[in-house]
Design a protein around this nucleic acid. Structure first.
Length: 304
DNA sequence: ATCCTATCCTGTAGGC
DNA sequence: TGCCTACAGGATAGGA
């Protein structure tokens, strides 16, 4: 669910809401996430102050004083929700409640429980196996085309799956992988090792552009994702191909196609993203007036 | 090594 | 209406 732009949105809002607050108590649900929530979390966090919210790929790092960092991954359905005051009504699937001394609360809610909460010594973050295997964060360290091309040398994995591999680049997920490849004009099935040099330049450029625009709009809410204020992200209406099978490409009007790669949906425009085995067309087909008029307003985000 | 599949879990949309 | 199946933005262990 949450990819880099969604996690970055949460990070920024946590900085704006809970940074500087001191923890009075932590309550746990007793249910396990992807791995068990440390049972000593309440004891170890009590009295600590949240000094910063950082991010690496899709990981959120809540840094506390006392040399500890709460490492969080949202999985598919995780949310951090901020409550200025204790809410009157309860919510299902809340697995951790952090109560601050000023009466505000920060809840971790995760319906599907694919998320992760663990406590790590801040000085040892770099050695945590979850983080040490991650590739560069494409927002913190924007990759260049030549770098990506070198990383992909000889790889037979499809470019779509290449972009999803967090050991290569950390932060891109299923939505933005499709969006990046459409904007870069690359067929998602192309073996990564056979993507042309100029397409790698385009992929590097569009990766930065897509992620920046999505962050600007507070991310994409497909169904589960919410900000810490429990609000949906606004990038859904900007999506060019993701979850738009059969609908006209916003560039050329051709029907968007859905295929399955690695048991997950990929969406692409067969005209704007021609197979690499054929001679590549330099320019995408001309934009029809019909596509233009449809593309402007954009369909509403179906699932809100 | 590299690549692919199955799996964890719950909610929901769509077919019948 | 209700039942059933398929699928959903994640990572990863294990097999080929």
């Amino acid at each position: 669910m949450p990819e880099l732009p969604e996690v970055e949105t949460v990070r920024r809002l946590l900085e704006a809401t809970v940074r500087g607050r001191t923890i009075r108590a932590v309550r746990l649900s007793g249910l396990e996430l992807r791995e068990p929530i440390p049972r000593n979390l309440p004891r170890r966090l009590k009295g600590l102050r949240l000094v910063a919210a950082r991010r690496l790929g899709k990981y959120l790092l809540l840094e506390l004083d006392g040399g500890l960092t709460l490492l969080s991954h949202l999985g598919m359905s995780g949310r951090w929700l901020f409550h200025p005051r204790t809410p009157a009504d309860d919510s299902p699937h809340v697995h951790a409640r952090i109560l601050f001394i000023d009466g505000s609360e920060l809840w971790y809610q995760d319906t599907r429980r694919f998320g992760l909460l663990r406590l790590v010594a801040t000085s040892r973050l770099g050695r945590d196996p979850r983080l040490s295997g991650l590739g560069p964060d494409p927002v913190a360290k924007p990759p260049t085309g030549p770098l990506l091309r070198a990383m992909a040398e000889g790889a037979r994995i499809a470019i779509k799956d290449f972009l999803l591999d967090q050991r290569r680049l950390a932060g891109i997920g299923n939505i933005y992988a499709s969006e990046i490849l459409h904007r870069a004009g690359v067929d998602p099935r192309t073996p990564a090792g056979r993507v042309a040099a100029d397409r790698w330049d385009a992929i590097a450029r569009e990766t930065g552009a897509v992620l920046a625009e999505a962050i600007e709009r507070s991310g994409t809410t497909f169904s589960m994702y919410r900000t810490v204020w429990n609000e949906p992200g606004g990038y859904g209406e900007q999506l060019r191909v993701y979850d738009r099978p059969g609908e006209p490409c916003r560039v050329c009007g051709t029907a968007i196609r859905r295929i399955v790669q690695g048991a997950r949906s990929t969406f692409y425009c067969p005209a704007c993203q021609p197979p690499a085995t054929r001679a590549r067309r330099r320019a995408p087909p001309r934009r029809s007036s019909r596509a233009r008029s449809r593309g402007r307003g954009g369909p509403s985000n179906r699932r809100a």
